Amino acid sequence: MVTSARMTAKEELQRLEDERVNMRAEAEAPFRTLRLVIFGFSVASAGVGTLISLPQLAGALNGGRNAMQVDDVLTNLAINIGAVTIFAFLFRQDWKAREKQLVRLGRESALASQRVLLANGKRRTLRDLQGTSRCVLLAGTPSQVAASLAAAEPYREQLLQRGVFIVPVPIFDEPASSSGSGGDEQQGQQQQAAATIPPLERGDLRWRGEAQQLQGYKQWFQDQLSFSSSKVTSDTGLYVGLRLDGRVRASGMGGAPWARMVAELAPLEGESKWAGMLDGFDGDSAPR
Rank of each mutant, 00 (worst) to 15 (best):
M1A: 14
T3F: 11
A5T: 12
M7L: 15
T8L: 14
E12F: 08
V21F: 01
E26D: 12
E28W: 07
F31S: 13
L34K: 09
R35P: 00
S42P: 02
S42A: 15
A44S: 11
S45P: 01
A46C: 13
G47A: 03
T50G: 14
I52S: 00
L54V: 15
D72E: 09
L77T: 04
A78K: 06
N80A: 07
V84R: 04
T85W: 12
F89L: 15
L90P: 03
W95T: 13
R98L: 06
K100G: 11
K100M: 10
Q101Y: 00
Q101D: 15
L102V: 11
L105N: 03
L105G: 01
L111P: 05
A112L: 14
A112N: 07
S113Y: 09
Q114G: 01
A119C: 13
T125D: 06
L129Q: 05
L129V: 02
T132Q: 14
T132D: 13
V136N: 01
A139Y: 13
S143D: 15
A146M: 08
A147Y: 10
A147I: 04
A150F: 12
A150Q: 14
A150R: 14
Y155V: 02
R156M: 07
L160R: 12
P168S: 11
I171A: 04
F172V: 01
D173C: 08
D173V: 01
P175Q: 05
S179L: 14
G180C: 08
D184W: 12
Q187K: 11
Q189I: 01
Q192R: 15
A194L: 09
I197E: 02
P199T: 10
G203L: 10
D204F: 03
G209Y: 00
G209F: 00
E210P: 02
Q212M: 12
G216R: 02
K218M: 10
W220P: 01
L225T: 02
S228F: 03
S228G: 03
T233W: 02
T236D: 08
G237Y: 07
Y239K: 03
L242E: 00
L242I: 02
L244A: 09
G246K: 00
A250Q: 03
S251P: 00
G255D: 11
R260H: 10
A263L: 11
A263F: 04
L268Y: 02
G270P: 03
E271D: 13
E271K: 10
W274M: 14
W274E: 15
A275S: 14
G276P: 03
L278V: 08
G280Y: 05
